[in-house]
């Protein structure tokens, strides 16, 4: 673990470089053969050749979307884990991704909405509804919000939304074709416009999360201590919840429900910089971006020339990690 601020800052720079390198790889590697020289040419003097078009319209958006979505999901996961004190908390396991996904499929199949702006708002709505229901369900009952109730309530809400989604799709075969790839979670085939539509919300949420970090640190000491130190804990929790909804909802609107990034990355980042959220959140953002971009690159090579949705790759890496955390015991401090 990095101890001094100097080491942490250096680590952060290194992570930035790694993210840049992996995005660069994401632009170069793939089915269409391109070299780094070609990539530079495509940006500086684009001659309209096939490779240059692939680089600017397909690969570049993909790398940017992968990095922003990965960063957002990882930060959402870190905030949720801090908020619930549950190491398994993340947008996918607590049903937030499934809620956003359900609302998007709903508007595609029934209301024939195709404007991406509308998608985004419905994704936020779905994420918010799922988050509120998980919270209300798990906070009810005599013993309050225990880790097991929270986890189970999340799973039940996720199961509800995904079975409703499947029901809608089984009634409408054409829609299934359209949304199946999206539903598995993927960053390919998206235009830059889509990222541009959600980017304001995502970047607002990133800044908000960094500003909230010191308050989250206090909250981690426990509700009583935080209240004793003069913190308005409910306000902080509400703010964190809104940030989670923006981050997760925005990610789902662009890339579909990609799982396990939000659960894994905060653990890895905590192993590197410890639990101070002022450092943890930036690390999560960078590492989440790196992980998703790398997973996306590997998704291109598994079944070449066909592509595998990156959501499947993250599940393949994420499930063993999840099982490891679950076995280690989530009640342990």
């Amino acid at each position: 673990m990095l101890k001094t601020n100097y080491a942490k800052g250096l680590g952060l720079m290194l992570a930035c470089l790694l993210l840049g390198a992996s995005m660069w790889m994401s632009i170069i590697l793939g089915y269409t053969n391109t070299s780094w020289k070609m990539a530079i040419d495509a940006f500086l003097h684009n001659d309209g050749s096939n490779e240059h078009i692939v680089i600017t319209t397909v690969r570049l958006p993909r790398a940017l979307i992968g990095a922003s979505v990965g960063a957002s999901l990882a930060m959402a996961g870190a905030l949720m884990q801090a908020l619930t004190k549950n190491p398994l908390a993340s947008p996918s396991i607590f049903g937030i991704n499934a809620g956003a996904g359900f609302f998007i499929v709903l508007v595609i199949t029934f209301f024939h909405v195709s404007s991406f702006q509308a998608f985004t708002w419905f994704a936020f709505l779905g994420a918010a509804i799922a988050a509120v229901s998980v919270f209300v369900i798990s906070a009810s009952g005599k013993e309050g919000m225990t880790p097991i109730k929270l986890t189970l309530a999340g799973t039940a809400v996720a199961a509800l939304f995904s079975s409703l989604t499947q029901g809608m799709l089984s009634a409408n075969e054409k829609a299934l074709e359209e949304v199946l790839f999206w539903l598995a979670g993927s960053v390919s085939g998206r235009k830059l416009d889509m990222l541009a539509a959600v980017f304001p919300y995502l970047s607002m949420a990133w800044i908000g999360a960094f500003l909230l970090a010191p308050k989250v640190n206090v909250l981690m000491l426990g509700d009583d201590v935080a209240a004793g130190l003069g913190q308005r804990i409910n306000m902080v929790k509400l703010a964190a919840a809104i940030l989670v909804v923006l981050l997760a909802g925005g990610s789902v609107a662009v890339a579909g429900p990609i799982g396990f990034i939000g659960m894994m990355v905060p653990h890895i980042a905590r192993g590197v910089v410890g639990t101070d959220h002022r450092w943890l959140l930036p690390y999560c953002a960078l590492m989440g971006g790196i992980l998703l971009v790398l997973a996306d690159i590997s998704a291109r090579y598994v079944l070449m020339p066909q592509e595998v949705p990156v959501g499947i790759m993250t599940a393949l890496i994420g499930v063993p990690f999840f099982i490891y955390i679950a076995r280690r015991g989530i009640l342990k401090k």
């Binding site: 799982g259 959501g311 393949l316 679950a326």
Partner: peptide, 14 residues
Amino acid sequence: VLIGIGISALMQAG
């Protein structure tokens, strides 16, 4: 239950 949730996710991905 927790492991069940994890394996469930893996099966869904498959």
